[in-house]
Amino acid sequence: MAAETTQDQTNPTDAPDAGQVRTGREGLVGLENEPGVAKPDPIVVATGIMRQFGGLKAVDVDHLEIQRGVITALIGPNGAGKTTFFNLLTGFDTPDSGDRTFNGRSLKRMSASRIARMGMVRTFQLTKVLSKLTVLENMRLGATGQIGERFWAGVLPFLWRGQEAANTERARDLLARFKLDAKEGDFAGSLSGGQRKLLEMARALMVEPELVMLDEPMAGVNPALKQSLLGHVKSLREDGMTVLFVEHDMDMVRDISDWVVVMAAGRVIAEGPPDSIMSDQRVIDAYLGAHHDTDITQLDAEAVMAEAEAELREEEQS
């Protein structure tokens, strides 16, 4: 609800002559492959974002704009600062300096939850499904503006039953779309890695976001599920949402993204459409600098394997 109103309010002011602005994918045509290039209809604008850990500059982004209504991929070698940048955009970490705007509103001093309510919802590299809640309860948790989540109303079920039923219906629709409907009564902890990714994505949609941020949606997902996940990501764009995702899987990047942003050593070194960006000298240098004599695609396979193994280890420990 809140997100929609913001959109309604900001769009006209941002673009008084909306007919002239090249929205969505159209807006990306003919843009220069330069880092920080201005987009005709940006949903997110980051300026001068810096974050240091100890003496190390993890993220140092001068300027970056994300076009509304398209799928943007964020790639880069390991340790490039992609996830940190993600955390900074979504309020899970605060930059030492610089600011970012969402729909023209500054996100300075805004909490992660507030940013999520504004319509910028993320998933996590290591999925954060709530394993001791059922799949359906996980989904219900995602709904915003719940009356029953207020303390006093919580005690009086008749106040929130109706809304809960409506949320449940929406949740079931989404679960059906993500083919998780058969599992709605199971504990989320019993799902496979890929199913968790799907659940997390479906749960994020319960928030009714404008911008969905996916942190490595393919990591640890078995190949059979990958195609359907790709389809789901694409369908988000068809539904009018903007998608920003971090990924190591170059096939996925090539397959579904409209625009690719490349980070290395904390900086955005290049951006552009997927077909031309892979051959950009700066991108090749960045990857070669990180891993000598490795072909990009091969490197990605290794990275994915490593990530998957790391995740497996993590799951074993838990």
Binding site: S113, K128, T144, G154, M206
Partner: peptide, 30 residues
């Protein structure tokens, strides 16, 4: 009993399990 069966209680139990997940869904965990 009433509270833990309400959406309010669901948020609490979710916080117990993973604060960041709850935060990412727009709830003010604090």
């Amino acid at each position: 009993w009433l509270l833990v069966r309400s959406p309010w209680g669901r948020v609490l139990k979710s916080i117990r399990e993973d604060e960041d997940a709850v935060r990412s869904l727009g709830k003010n965990v604090y």
